[in-house]
Structure formats: structure tokens, C-alpha cells
Design a protein around this nucleic acid. Sequence first.
RNA 1: GGAGGGUUACCGAAGUGGUCAUAACGGGGCGGUCUUGAAAACCGUUUGAGAGCAAUCUCACAAGGGUUCGAAUCCCUUACCCUCCGCCA
Length: 424
Amino acid sequence: MFDIKALRENFEETKRLLSKRGKDFQLERFETLDKRRRELIRESEDMKAKQNAATKQIPSLKKEGKDTAPLMAEMKELSDTIKALEPEVRAIDEELDDFLMGIPNTPHATVPEGLSEADNVEIRRWGEPLVFDFEPKPHWDLGEALGIFDPATAAKITGSRFVMLRGLGARMERALISFMLDRHTAHGYEEISPPVIAHRRSMEGVGQLPDKEGQLFHLSDTDYFLIPTAETPLTNIHREEIIDGARLPVKFCAFTPSFRKEAGAAGRDTRGLIRMHQFPKVEIFMLARPENSYDELERLTADAEDILQKLGLPYNVTKQCAGDLGFANAMTYDLNVWMPSYNKYVEVSSCSNFEAFQARRAGIRFKDSGGKPVFTHTLNGSGLGVNRTIAAIWENFQQADGRVKIPGALVPYMGGITEISARS
RNA sequence: GGAGGGUUACCGAAGUGGUCAUAACGGGGCGGUCUUGAAAACCGUUUGAGAGCAAUCUCACAAGGGUUCGAAUCCCUUACCCUCCGCCA
């Protein structure tokens, strides 16, 4: 959502940046609507000022014993005129609002040109993809053979695209969640356990509604939704608030299950742990000052990378091109973990700066003493998707005989267990 | 599910149709006086949005409607919070 004033002032620049997304958003319509809106506001406010002045006179006139009937009749007429204008003002307001709601965020100046994922730019790599002296198995085969991954039973309980972990598989999920949250709290993120159901207003604040209604599970009989990511509750913690500027940056981390109705294109990644209707995720989140939000994005990204490094999982970092960038995002880094069975890097985290785009929708502002309220920048990233991390561990740490070693950093969280074998 | 009570500024709270959104009063915050410093005391200050070059004007008392010349105040609808009863993991 754009700020009307800012858009008016930076019209050409905004148009130029938006064009990088490879679509025409017909921004010219804004100028027409904005002009008309201001005319109507002026007209209606002039009449209201007149009405207010007369209304103040009436009591004193009455006190003096004068006849107020003619003035009251006149005001009745004015009142009717004002009321008649109201629907028009509201209509133009709504039209402008709807129009602006449909315009995505402007990509940051350094976001690369491009139309799809293929145009994303690799920024750096960490670790070396392992060369196996045997044919590495995909994680679903490994997991089923070890009895720690049981999609059939999950399907029996609910349906396809749901998973069930058992035994040390379930234990690994719990271990990873604890490990990740411990790392993040050490980096200054406050740990949050939020509701995983949110109402419509919260969804709108983050931009998941009206944009992605089809992706959300809606609870019948209520206007509640299952959250598609912890970003939803975390962003809404300070919704409609003005926070003290001295408190920035505000940093939260949270583990929650996440729920998505459309888990991706059919026929793609249909096996294993990758695209599920329900998946566990640890999220990191930040409210930052506008002037240093890109420094904070580097920091947040580093905090997510830290998890992969501590686990010893090879990965790369790519910067999303303008065409791949999410609706509300100004800049996004993807962390992609090496997945031997895919023979490529697979996304485990997206770290984004939304600048003030979400904050304007959600009304999140800060104020320095003596200053005016200013919209914060919001940032978030997965830190990390737990299922994808599990899949990456199974695949990268698999042995020729099908055993899976536990990464050193995770061993204490696994109660000292160092490997998973069919017997364990 | 049943019965009540509530929602006003940073917090508490008064205000039941007119000059009361320059929102009483109390607290907190900020600035100052006094003090070696602090506390206390005293004085001052302290919501946000929109229109306008500006002067200034408009809007907002949970949200949305209505009545009225005029609504924080009266009427209707909705949301949320609290208390008690019932049910319940």
C-alpha cells in the first residue's frame, strides 16, 4: 500500500521502479483519482466549516431570545447538501484505495531485472556440495526406510500433502525447533508463541488479504483463518501502534505450524517433505528504522544463514529479480540449501525487506521524542523452514548403508544420539 | 450456550443533546525553577489523520449506520474485553 502524498511527490520514480516488475500498473489513473478526491474534499470541508460556525451561533441566539428558525432551516438545507456529497467522497476514496491496494511494492534500486526465478542472481555460496561415492537417495526413501517418515498414515488421517514424522524423525523436528530458537534468542530476538489462527484484519495488515485469499484455510462459521506463516501474528503484534523510536529494532522469533491451501503447482515436488498444507517453520522478524533497514536485512539474512552453517549444510544465497519478487517485498534474498537428490539448491528461507509497505497497511509507526510518527520498515525471514531443513539433513548426511548422521550442533538437542539407523 | 458490565488521549477516569477534541480531574512522560547532585515542591508542556503555498480549516470519544440545525451523550447493527453460571481439553 502506497502513501498518497509520497506517491504524488515521487510519481515518475515510482513508475520507473514498478516497471521493473514487468507489468503495466496504469499508474496514470492515480493522478486522475487523486485530483478528483482533493476537489471533493475541499468542497465538502468548506460546507462543513460553514455549518459548524452556524451551529455555534444557535445557542447564543436562543439565549438572547432571538428566533433561530430561519437559520435552522438554512442549516437543514446545507446539512442535506453535505450528506448528498458524502457518497461521492466515499466512492472516490474507496476507488483510490482499491487501486492502491492492487499496486505492489516498488523493488529496491539494486533488485536485478528479470521476469522469473531463472533470472535470480547468486550472491554467494557457503560450503561444498558433497560428492557421494554411491547414489544418494532422496529424503523420502531414506525416511521411509528408517521408519521416521510416514506420509501414508498422514494421508489416512487427513489427506495428501500432509506428513507425519515418527520416532527420531519427530524428535529431530523438535530438536531443530529448539536449536533454531536458541540461536535466534542469542541474537536478540524475543521468542514468541503466538496464536496460529488470526482474524481478517490481521491478514489484511500483512497483505495476505485480499491478495491471497485462495491460499488460506478459512474456518467456517467464523471469520478466522489459519496463519500461512508466523509473519502474520508477528507483524500484527504492534499493529495500529506508535512505538518509542528508542526501542528499534524490535526483533521477534517464533515457531509455529504454517497452513497453506495451495501448496504449489501440481506435479512438482510432490513427494517428500517439501510442499505441504501444514508445515513447521521458525520465523524471524524485525521492525527497523527506515534509514538502516537494509543493514538490518543483511543482519537478519546472516542470522538465518547461521543456522545452515552451524548444521553444516551447503547453501547459496540468491537475490530475487524484480519479476519473482513478492507483492509486498522491496528486496528478497533466498537461502537455498543443497539437496543431493534434486542435484540443485532448494529454497529454505526467504529474507525480505518490505520497507514501509506492510507498516502502512498495518499502521505500525515509531516516534522519536519530539518527532512526528514515522512508519517503520518491516523485515522477515524463515529461520528456517523445519521440514526442508530435515530433508536436507537426511540427504546431505546419509551414508551408503542408509543411516543418517546427526549434525554435531544438533546432537545435544537429540539427547546425545549421533545417528539414525533402521534399528534405532 | 445463559445473564450482566464495559470500550473516551501514554495510563486511570469525568462527561447523558449546544460554545466539551484547547475533553475536567489524577498519574506518567518531557522541559524548566529550586538543589553540590537527586528527591520533594512549584511552573509549563504532552493524540493522531486529511485538505491548503500559507493563514487556517476538516475529521476522529471501539467500528458502522440512523435521528437532529447540532451527538462522546439518544436509537439500531457489529466487533472486542471483563464478571458470574453452564459445558469442556
